[in-house]
Amino acid sequence: MTTPTQALSDAGVSIWLDDLSRQRLEDGSLAALISEKNVVGVTTNPTIFQAAITKGHGYDGQLRELVAEGADAEKTVFEITTADVADACQLFAPVAEATRGVDGRVSIEVDPRLAWDTAGTIAEAKRLHAKVAQPNVHIKIPATLEGLEAISATLAEGISVNVTLIFSLTRYRAVINAFMTGLEKAKAAGHDLSKIHSVASFFVSRVDTEIDKRLEKIGTEQAAALKGKAGLANARLAYQIYEEEFTTERWKLLADAGALPQRPLWASTGVKDPSLPDTLYVTGLVAPGVVNTMPEKTLEATFDHAEVTGDTVTGTYAEANAHLDALAELGIDYNDVVAVLESEGLDKFVASWKDLLADVERTLSETAHGARA
């Protein structure tokens, strides 16, 4: 019997897990998700690593070594996270080989405090890539205005990139432009374009969270009828852009040189509103050539009871545009919504990173004094 996750894969959706820890690597649970639930990649972020490092004892041995070396929190985070990502890359290496590098990818994020620092982001991307030293690593770079140039420059070095924190359709077009610019530079520098991979992480559930909050303030029956639908509409229109941009003459020249398209990745696919179906951002965003990165709770719900009915994206663009138009008629400013979401998203990333450093600093102190429980 075909499982829902197998049905997703058959429909052209690559399932990635939005989580990583040393425990998952060592106890075989991540390997089991690969073999049993069609997981073909992993994404990480500071919040994920904060939970992994500060809970349990999986990192105690490495922490003791780093304490003995006199490592500070920054170096400790760098060493631990790159080690986990490198090990995960090795675990996914057979997937990467079988898919010619399209899947089997593991993402690690540039320090989010560099999101407004183009040169700093480029330098950190190169540093992370060199340290992980695995061909199937993705370096995550936020899609800020400052990040766009960094994305192009990193790709130009032959480094694969996961562009993260995309909310706006306009910014998504700019991300695709940055991707193609990077590949054009990589081609000019003599890189093999078939070895350079990228995804564009388009965030979904947070759009509903912000817009539904505004609809509740309006409080009319018309407003209530529009709740819980903007996230899907926005993502579906992003896929329309993907279809448009990767059929241009500019792209054809790159594809003829061996380049593969930058795939849309649906991120933030855990449902925040309990009144909505828990697999909404999975079953509602099925289309060929996309990635859906899921927290484990969403993955388990998908495997258990998702109803996968095939492509639910192409052919929905008129309806999606009509939904955004209806929001505008109620006074909800799309440009303001996506600007707020980008700002809040970056603030959350930076806060998580600072919390991670503070927790690691405390853990290093406890380890040094033999007080780690």
Score class of each variant (00 low, 15 high):
P4E: 07
N136H: 13
E36Y: 09
G58E: 12
V137Y: 06
A119G: 06
A188I: 07
E300G: 02
N177S: 15
E366D: 14
T283L: 02
R250K: 11
G270Q: 03
T144F: 03
A259W: 00
D325L: 04
L276F: 14
V102G: 00
G289Q: 10
V132L: 07
A71N: 09
G58L: 11
V337K: 06
L324D: 04
D84S: 10
K37L: 13
T293F: 00
E361G: 15
V199I: 14
W266T: 11
L285I: 11
A257V: 05
V350P: 00
L155P: 04
S205C: 08
F203L: 08
Y172V: 07
Q23W: 03
F203K: 07
G310C: 13
I34V: 15
K229W: 05
A358Q: 13
E69Y: 01
G370T: 13
G28S: 13
G284S: 07
V271C: 01
P94K: 10
G182I: 00
L280S: 10
V95K: 03
N321G: 11
V204D: 01
E65M: 05
L280T: 01
V199H: 08
E244Y: 07
E300Q: 10
M1T: 10
R372W: 07
W353P: 03
N321W: 08
F246Y: 14
E124R: 14
R362D: 14
A230M: 08
A153L: 14
W251Q: 07
T302P: 09
P274V: 10
T81N: 09
T247A: 15
I122V: 15
L25Q: 04
A328N: 07
S268H: 01
T247I: 04
Y281M: 06
T283W: 07
R127A: 14
G120D: 02
K348R: 13
